[in-house]
Write a protein that binds this DNA or RNA. Sequence first.
DNA 1: GCTTGACCCTGTAGTTGCTACAGGCTGCAT
DNA 2: ATGCAGCCTGTAGCAACTACAGGGTCAAGC
Lengths: 136, 136
Amino acid sequence: MKIGELSRATGTNIETIRYYERIGLLPPPARTDANYRSYGGEHRSRLSFVRHSRDLGFTIEEIRSLLDLSDHPDRDCGEADRIATRHLEQVEEKIAQLSALREELSRIIGRCRGGLAGDCRVIEALGDHGQCASPH
Amino acid sequence: MKIGELSRATGTNIETIRYYERIGLLPPPARTDANYRSYGGEHRSRLSFVRHSRDLGFTIEEIRSLLDLSDHPDRDCGEADRIATRHLEQVEEKIAQLSALREELSRIIGRCRGGLAGDCRVIEALGDHGQCASPH
DNA sequence: GCTTGACCCTGTAGTTGCTACAGGCTGCAT
DNA sequence: ATGCAGCCTGTAGCAACTACAGGGTCAAGC
């Protein structure tokens, strides 16, 4: 199949597919006489693997390691587990950060009752140095 | 004060301060005879505003709008409220996404019992097209 | 047989928000 | 005088794409 078909089949931008090839995440496919890329089922499933991993937020480097393991079924699976576990921890940390951020934003927005920017609590709160809840 | 002092006073990298000036987020300060940047209290509070906003995850463009409002106290504050509210929505959406992601990662990792990569549930799950809980 | 339009190719530059040099000047202490 | 911290400009790098510019290829329709 040509790159456009692979693109539709996997929901991946054409430019992104070529990018993945350029950085060595996908192997260079065969070419037609017209120098068009020609992909098979293996490329397709490899790209699906990459897309799914990206959707889960793994970095390109992490995916490289995961693909490497996937290419060597005789290796120990512990590394995959470590990568995934570390990633899960990062996701949990990010959620915690964003939750704190949500609290602060809610607090700031709750104080805005319209009017002029000069009296705006949102702008005022941003100017403060981290003291957003009024002390009493 | 010189750029190093401003840097320490606001917890901002020197390179970042110059970057903010370059993109027009901070006004160019006066210069000493030796062509050193010379900042006053206004620069300091403006930079604090920027840092605090960045910590809350606002983009540079959003901060540009917020600063603009802050510079014109006679304008309507509704725009600040809209920016902050939209941002809060984005944060909430991101939290929701990450929570879903956490669930999927936990599920994937829970299935790994060690062994060889060929049997690894983590790698297998990544290869699937979104069907990670086995149907039976 | 010729044109139109969809598709493909390479290579490079842009995006966001910084960060990290290289290569050179200034200011102060020893 | 010499060393070192601190400052200057300008450019390049990071992640992970995305968006062209400028060209080649192929099938269909007139």
